[in-house]
């Protein structure tokens, strides 16, 4: 078990009796739907998968602040400005809980940040689309946060304790975010012709990308099986996508607007929603870096990080000086 926290340590293919016992304990905890906590033994693959998933989620919250921050200074009423500011702040908060949850797996936040700004780490590709109009604040809240909720509610029961608990809090705030997004669209849909068009255009642009937030179709998602076995994930990508599309198909009627998917229907026979083919080539291209805003989003994060370096250095130096003074005194 000595190698447990050392990813560079020698990997023995023959487990020691201690390792076998630890693995048995881990398997039993997963089987009985209990929780793995930071000090428990866990397989390296579980640790790595969780670190990747939680940090990607944290990065998504942090990068996801940018499209909305783009409209804070131009929000069309002071009340909307205030709500939007609070929402983007919540996202920074979510990023922080999630980085903390990831840190319990042994990777410090500065390493995770470095992975993000070097372009090595991924984040939700939907944030690589531009927020062109005010209505995008509505569509992002309703569709993007809505998809995130469908994804995240089952994660509240994820087998890794710190992740599940972080998700409980995140989901509460996300559901407020989704409501405020829907409310923005309601207001626009009941407004002038130009406002209505703005709302429809935003829905048209975010519909496909939001459905793709659940990831590739099940047949094309090789990692899903293992994460489901570990009870990190509880439902497949396609199951979650079904749940989401059914939800928004109803909600869009309340808005009096439409989804850009004339083929969308509920098939009584299979009990499934049939939606149009999604553009997976575009999805892959955006993940690979070719989205309209990939370069911009990463550069903003890099700039903030580099321009803030002197501040962080000063804070560290100050803390050290105060510590020295305290020791002398």
């Amino acid at each position: 078990m000595a190698a447990q926290n050392d990813p560079n340590g020698p990997l023995s293919t023959v487990p020691t009796p201690e390792e076998e016992a630890a693995q048995e304990h881990f398997d039993a905890v997963i089987a009985e739907d209990s929780r793995i906590e930071p000090r428990d033994w866990m397989p390296e693959g579980y640790r790595k998968t969780l670190t990747r998933q939680i940090s990607q989620h944290a990065h998504s919250e942090i990068i996801g602040m940018q499209p909305e921050a783009n409209w804070i200074t131009r929000a069309p009423s002071l009340k909307r400005k205030s709500i939007l500011m609070a929402k983007v702040q919540d996202e920074a908060g979510h990023g922080l809980y999630l980085y903390s949850a990831a840190e319990t797996l042994g990777t410090p936040r500065d390493v995770l940040t470095e992975q993000l700004i070097s372009g090595k780490a991924k984040y939700s590709s939907i944030f690589n689309y531009p927020a062109r109009s005010w209505a995008d604040m509505g569509a992002i809240g309703w569709l993007v946060d809505g998809a995130a909720i469908v994804n995240q509610v089952p994660l509240c029961r994820a087998s890794y304790g710190p992740y599940g608990r972080a998700m409980v809090r995140v989901c509460k705030e996300e559901s407020f975010h989704q409501r405020q997004g829907f409310e923005i669209l309601m207001e626009l849909a009941a407004g002038t012709e130009a406002q209505k068009q703005m709302a429809q255009d935003a829905i048209n642009r975010f519909y496909g990308p939001s459905l793709m937030m659940f990831g590739p179709p099940d047949g094309d998602s090789p990692n899903s099986q293992q994460t489901m076995k570990w009870k990190i994930k509880r439902f497949t990508n396609d199951d979650l996508r079904q749940r989401f599309v059914g939800m928004i198909a109803e909600q869009v009627k309340v808005l009096g607007l439409t989804l850009p998917d004339p083929e969308l229907r509920f098939d009584e026979e299979t009990g499934k929603w049939i939606h149009k083919d999604l553009d997976w080539a575009e999805f892959k291209a955006v993940i690979a870096g070719a989205g309209p805003c990939n370069a911009q989003r990463l550069q903003r994060r890099r700039d903030a990080h580099h321009e803030g370096a002197w501040v962080r250095e000063a804070a560290a130096a100050y803390a050290e000086k105060m510590q020295q003074e305290a020791e002398v005194a």
Binding site: I62, A69, I72, T73, Q89, Y99, R300, V311, R312
Partner: peptide, 15 residues
Amino acid sequence: LSNWISRGPEIEEDI
């Protein structure tokens, strides 16, 4: 001040 959101030296300062 709102222009600092997503540009702070630390996420804690964005908040």
